[in-house]
Nucleic acid binder design. Structure first.
Ligand code: FES
Ligand code: FES
Lengths: 143, 143
DNA sequence: TCTTTTTTATGATATTTATCATATTCTAGG
DNA sequence: CCTAGAATATGATAAATATCATAAAAAAGA
């Protein structure tokens, strides 16, 4: 459903959501240490996120990664699209060219509605929504 | 969500559900040709299915694969468990040790209920149920 | 301007998954 | 029994993912 890389991306972004701010930047090494994401792999994931303005970064001393106001308003689906592309989530479980209700594969009805709803949720939920959940103790970021 | 191997397994079993019977056995080559599953890969997938009595087989001239009455009553989840093991489907999206509502990860509520329902559906649906759907034109097996 | 700190970029290795190829065993029929 | 047709078992290769390592670029401070 989600690639390992997407999981890491989401974890890293959420970690930044909780622990960073414009004033308090965070080193990739800290993210790596705290989330158990391999350091170099994490770097490779943060790059496209940075390029696409999902996270903010400055280099040099005192630099690091952080989430700006705008970053926090990004819908989760954007993160997944950047890392996994936009086909993985919506593709047919049995690899029909297209997943739609007019020409459904045998599994479509077993999952269809639920998959669509998940995608909708990813579109309608932002990073700050999840950060709020975590900070309110409604959910827990795996560390 | 489902591995490629599971997709192939389901496709192959459904193909047999439609095209085989105790009297009309089907060669693995035919399955491979019709479903575009690579021949040797398919063989490797059919073996554990045969061992676990998901499909029936006889070797030698006139032999092949087919689905018995009992095979048709197998719930879909069994096929997936044999191929993917029983963790892949139920594991946490963000790789918490366990996915449960008491200690949910930030994504849990975006998908949780729906994932549980999908698994329930896989447990409650048998091969013959899906075959009936296909034969009634309610769904389509990718060929 | 030099050094240090950090991200960014690129390439190499390892692991997993998918695919291919070949040898072995079983079974029916002559 | 002998042969041929089939599944079964095992091992080898290829491709995709995940991981590691290193070099380059930018920014800050002395
Ligand atoms: S058509 Fe296969 S999951 Fe929708
Ligand atoms: S706890 Fe992560 S999906 Fe349920």
């Amino acid at each position: 459903m989600l690639s390992n890389s997407s999981k890491y991306a989401l974890k890293a972004v959420l970690y930044l959501g909780i622990n960073s701010s414009e004033e308090k930047k965070v080193l990739s090494k800290e993210i790596s240490d705290r989330t158990n994401i391999p350091k170099a792999y994490l770097s490779k994931i943060l790059q496209p996120l940075s390029r696409h303005h999902i996270v903010s970064s400055v280099r040099g001393p005192g630099g690091g990664f952080y989430l700006s106001k705008e970053n926090r308003a990004v819908p989760l689906i954007d993160i997944i699209h950047i890392i996994d592309g936009d086909h993985r989530l919506t593709s047919c479980l049995l690899s029909l060219k297209e997943c739609n209700a007019e020409h459904p594969c045998p599994l479509h009805d077993l999952v269809g509605d639920t998959k669509v709803r998940f995608v909708k949720n990813l579109e309608g939920t932002t990073v700050e929504d999840l950060v709020a959940d975590i900070e309110a103790g409604r959910s827990f970021l795996p560390l």
